[in-house]
């Protein structure tokens, strides 16, 4: 996972509330066997509507999503985070996230920051005044800026640390590499191994 410190990318105002995971990625896409390549599945039901925001030219390259309240509710599918990430989003802001979505996003390197409803509206207006403008997300300072507007966002310390360090669950465990290697060195020789294959 890449380290996340300061990032600037095209801002997208998603003026919708209660965007659940089924809207983020419909169930039919869950049959796939990959963990990547879900960019086409993101908001699939809405992508057919010409006036949907991601169908509009300046927003197509979106990387920072500013959404209405209650984002990521519904089923716990990790695919919702994969789809946002694969599309190119690096950060999502909302005044309220579903807990499971937030947990999943932190593990996959997608920053989900909580902003106030008032700041959401201000960001929307600032972006809509200059479609295609970039938003700068500063995880060190915990701020998001569009033009001259800067607002604060909240994120828990643990997730922030993981994002700053670029650590996924596996990366975290591998910080114990020495302890794992020591344990392996002491494992008794009678423990079975699958290789070389026997009995075939």
């Amino acid at each position: 996972m890449e380290k996340f410190e300061v990032f600037t990318g095209t801002a997208v105002p998603l003026r919708r509330s209660n965007v659940d995971t089924d809207q983020i990625i419909p169930a039919v896409y869950l049959k796939r066997i990959t963990k990547t390549g879900y960019d086409d599945a993101l908001f699939a039901a809405w992508r057919g509507e010409p006036d949907f925001i991601l169908n509009q030219e300046p927003y197509k390259a979106g990387q920072v999503l500013i959404a209405g309240p209650d984002f990521g509710t519904g089923s716990s599918r990790e695919h919702a985070v994969w789809a946002l990430r694969d599309y190119g989003f690096k950060a999502v802001f909302s005044s309220k996230f579903a807990d499971i979505f937030r947990g999943n996003s932190g593990k996959q390197g997608l920053l989900s920051g909580v902003i106030t409803d008032a700041d959401t509206e201000k960001l929307w207006q600032a972006i809509e005044a200059q479609p295609g403008i970039g938003a700068t997300v500063d995880l060190v300072a915990k701020t998001v800026s569009v033009g001259s507007l800067t607002v604060n966002f909240e994120i828990d310390d643990y997730t922030r640390w993981r994002l700053l360090e670029g650590l996924d669950d596996i990366g975290l465990t591998l910080q114990n590499e020495q302890a794992i290697a020591d344990f392996e060195a002491k494992r008794p020789s009678f423990k079975p191994q699958t290789l070389p294959a026997k009995g075939v």
Partner: peptide, 22 residues
């Protein structure tokens, strides 16, 4: 397993212990 392997591939990680996996 498919998404688990895909995750490894993405992160450029190998299977740590092929001799404990089947």
């Amino acid at each position: 397993s498919p998404q688990a392997f895909d995750g490894l591939r993405q992160a450029g990680r190998p299977v740590r212990r092929l001799d404990l996996t089947i």
